[in-house]
Amino acid sequence: MNILSVIVQRLGLGILTVLIVSILVFVGTEILPGDVAYAILGQGATPELVANIQERLGLDEPAHLRYLAWLGELLRGDLGTSLANGAILNDVIGERIGNTVLLAAVTAAIAVPLSVVLGLIASTRPDSAIDRLISTSTLALISVPDFLIAVLLVSLFAVQLGWLPAIANLNRVDGFLEYARVLALPVTALSFTVMAHMARMTRSAVLNVLTSSPIEMAILKGVPKWRIILVHALPNAIAPIINVIALNLAYLITGIVVIESMFNFPGIGRLMVEGVTTRDIPLVQAAAMIFCSTYVVLNLAADIISLIANPRVRHPK
């Protein structure tokens, strides 16, 4: 098994997955029963408006042709136009995607290292006071809806104390400190849930490695504790930890949608929720494709990293 061919194979699989995802997105948004245009327009449907929408959606053509046309435009980088206000989606989304990336990146930069460290601490001392503390508090955090955490944070820091803004308006901010002030609450709210999941999974992944025979052998060989963890356990724990991180991106994406709406944050998560409310099909399709493809690509990256970390793949027989 050549490592390069394995990676190429995974890449192919990734492309296939994105294709399947695109089919699902397309079919999902178009499973409207009855007349699509009437359903979208509701009671305000006039014959002209209906005709207009039918033309814009190309509903007179068969579904598979519409799918191929949509996919073709997508591949050329054309996301289409909004059904609600006719805006060009490339512009609308282009304007906001940077904000969402910023929010996600800052959250990841804080949550990932912190949760891995917490997970490591808990796993090296199972059943100790610190482990119980970490385990119970993370358990409580994953049990509480993320919007509840946001509500509590807002009522404390924005309403009661008035230290931080409750609305994340990025239009009039300037300079690093201002950005930090605006992002503080959304990032904290988002980090809590993601961190809780990640720390718990890291704990069990590392605990699994620490109770394995090679680690017992290292202890019996007289290897000092720190060296066991760094040299003997870590290489075996990398793949599971990477997988844990990738898995939790799903929570991050869910969190982004909720938190952006909650804080009126100008990102594509909120844009998408607005699109769902107004039944703006092209907008929802575009946003869904962006979120899903990112998720698939990041998972793919995790998969490939853990493959490379596997000695059986790196050093074939």
Binding site: I20, V21, L32, I253, V257, R279, V284, C292
Partner: peptide, 21 residues
């Protein structure tokens, strides 16, 4: 199922809600 799991749950929900209300 692999393909469906490659799909963040919230996205699927939002898409269906868009279509069906």
């Amino acid at each position: 199922v692999d393909a469906l799991i490659a799909f963040p749950a919230i996205m699927l929900a939002l898409i269906v809600i868009t279509a069906l209300g």
